[in-house]
């Protein structure tokens, strides 16, 4: 698409969100949608990140704070459960970690190149609350 000539696109610079008919999109999750190639869902901003959030489900209480406050639709929740982070669309802002209420946090920021298994193995212990 990036190299299309002037005669190779729809007039008016109009873009379609989906290929074909998309009925009831408000109750259809991403994995069941037929995104068009011009939907930004098909693009990635992973290279914006300096740090990435890693998710440790052992501590997660599925409160969904991370889901509601994620500005990039990158907290994947299904059936009221937090199941992971969408690494194509996460920009690494760190809000999910800030709002995570568990102790220790179920989400923590790591350097982009951090190995996930090692990070999970070295996850911090529960912090004692200051009196």
């Amino acid at each position: 698409m990036e190299n299309n000539g002037w005669n190779e696109f729809e007039i008016g610079a109009m873009l379609r969100s989906f290929d074909g008919a998309a009925t009831d999109i408000a109750t259809t999750h991403q994995e069941d949608r037929n995104y068009s190639s011009s939907n930004s869902f098909t693009a990635s901003v992973a290279d914006w990140r300096i740090e990435k959030p890693l998710f440790n489900k052992d501590y997660c209480i599925d409160c969904q704070f991370c889901w509601i406050y994620c500005p990039d639709m990158s907290i994947i929740s299904r059936d009221k459960k937090m199941i992971g982070v969408d690494m194509d669309h996460c920009k690494g802002c760190g809000i999910c970690v800030e709002v995570c209420p568990t102790n220790p946090k179920s989400l923590l920021m790591f350097a982009e190149q951090q190995n996930e298994e090692e990070a999970l193995a070295a996850w911090p212990e529960k912090e004692e609350k200051e009196k």
């Binding site: 299309n4 002037w6 696109f9 610079a13 873009l15 379609r16 969100s17 989906f18 008919a21 998309a22």
Partner: peptide
């Protein structure tokens, strides 16, 4: 059933082609 986006942003990489069209 066919959502469309009208009135996009195009910069130096696309604007010329749309105006040419």
């Amino acid at each position: 059933d066919h959502p469309v986006t009208h009135g996009v942003q195009t910069e130096e990489d696309w604007h010329f082609e749309h105006k040419a069209r």
